[in-house]
């Protein structure tokens, strides 16, 4: 059903004047959005192909040049074991992508499903779901993630689950909000009156209209997941060495900060550029899809 929509989009959606075409045209002339898209593509490229294309082994130690600053041989310098910081920064993109994709994917699927159920059935179902959401929102998302880590213990996979759970109420709330207004539309009333099954009405009739809101919110959440994963791995609660993450690199660099600050500087810059790219993309998508967002990125930035 949703798959069918996407296929028909790909086949027919590109006609001049179609919704998709209009959005595409708007996005193309949205300078910030395009910059964001380019950065995000670069990030995805490094995260997926990085470990294959980097010239060095991220764990190879060169004891002759330890804690060196940037040079031709080591553009980002070397760390306390003589490992190449550039290689490690590129490789570190993968862990952040892994956490962000899986946790936001989890939060989106769970949040959209429950949000649709809540907005479609309304009444008691909605009450029950929203009271549970209230409790989850009683914690700032980083604290909710810490509750989950307290239960499961530290680790990369546990961080994924922790963030997935922590972001679910946010996705749920924004989906429910839009679902409630879409629920009042005539085509939904018609589908219900026609006797279409609830599940079909939710995913076939309502979901395509929520899609812009969901995709924009997911993009922004993706950016936050990268930031929080970095913070958790900096604290030693996410992946453990020898896994390379930006947070671990910054934390290791902090120990030798006065000798070689570059060890912390570059992974930090990598985070900033990636998150900027994602928020720019989110703003571009929001403006060209005419979607709502929960206000985290606020007013228009053109």
């Amino acid at each position: 059903m949703v798959y069918g929509k996407i296929v028909s989009f790909a086949r027919n959606g590109f006609h001049d004047g179609s919704q998709f075409h209009l959005a595409y045209k708007r996005f193309r002339s949205h300078r910030l959005g395009v910059i964001g898209l380019v950065i995000v593509i670069g990030y995805l490229f490094f995260a997926i192909a990085g470990p294959i294309i980097v010239p060095r082994d991220p764990t190879a130690m060169d004891s002759a040049s330890r804690l060196a600053g940037p040079s031709m041989a080591h553009p980002f310098g070397t760390d306390h074991y003589g490992r190449d910081v550039f290689t490690r920064t590129v490789v570190g993109a993968r862990a952040s992508l892994q956490v962000a994709v899986l946790s936001v994917g989890f939060a989106t699927i769970a949040g959209v499903t429950f949000g649709l159920v809540s907005g479609f059935f309304r009444g008691y179902v909605d009450e029950a779901i929203m009271r549970a959401v209230d409790v989850m929102l009683a914690f700032p998302s980083i604290l909710l993630a810490l509750v989950v880590i307290a239960i499961l213990g530290p680790g990369l996979n546990r961080t994924i689950l922790a963030l997935g759970i922590a972001y679910t109420p946010l996705m749920l709330r924004i989906t429910r909000g839009s679902a409630l207004s879409v629920r009042e539309e005539e085509y939904v009333t018609a589908a219900v009156a026609y006797g279409e099954r609830s599940w079909n009405v939710m995913f076939k009739e309502m979901f395509p209209n929520l899609f812009p809101t969901v995709i924009v919110q997911a993009t922004i959440t993706f950016a936050f997941a990268i930031l929080v994963e970095a913070a958790l791995s900096y604290l030693g609660l996410s992946a453990q060495p020898p896994t390379v993450t930006w947070g671990i690199m910054i934390s290791e660099g902090q120990e030798v900060l006065t000798v070689n600050p570059w060890m912390s500087i570059f992974p930090g810059l990598a985070i900033i550029v990636t998150v900027l790219g994602l928020t720019f993309l989110g703003i571009g998508l929001r403006d060209s899809l005419d979607a709502q967002e929960d206000g985290t990125i606020g007013g228009g930035f053109q």
Binding site: L227, A231, I250, Q254, S264, I271
Partner: peptide, 14 residues
Amino acid sequence: QIGIAIPNFWLGIM
């Protein structure tokens, strides 16, 4: 925009 993208712990270290 930069303020949102900067990891606070990294800023702290810097």
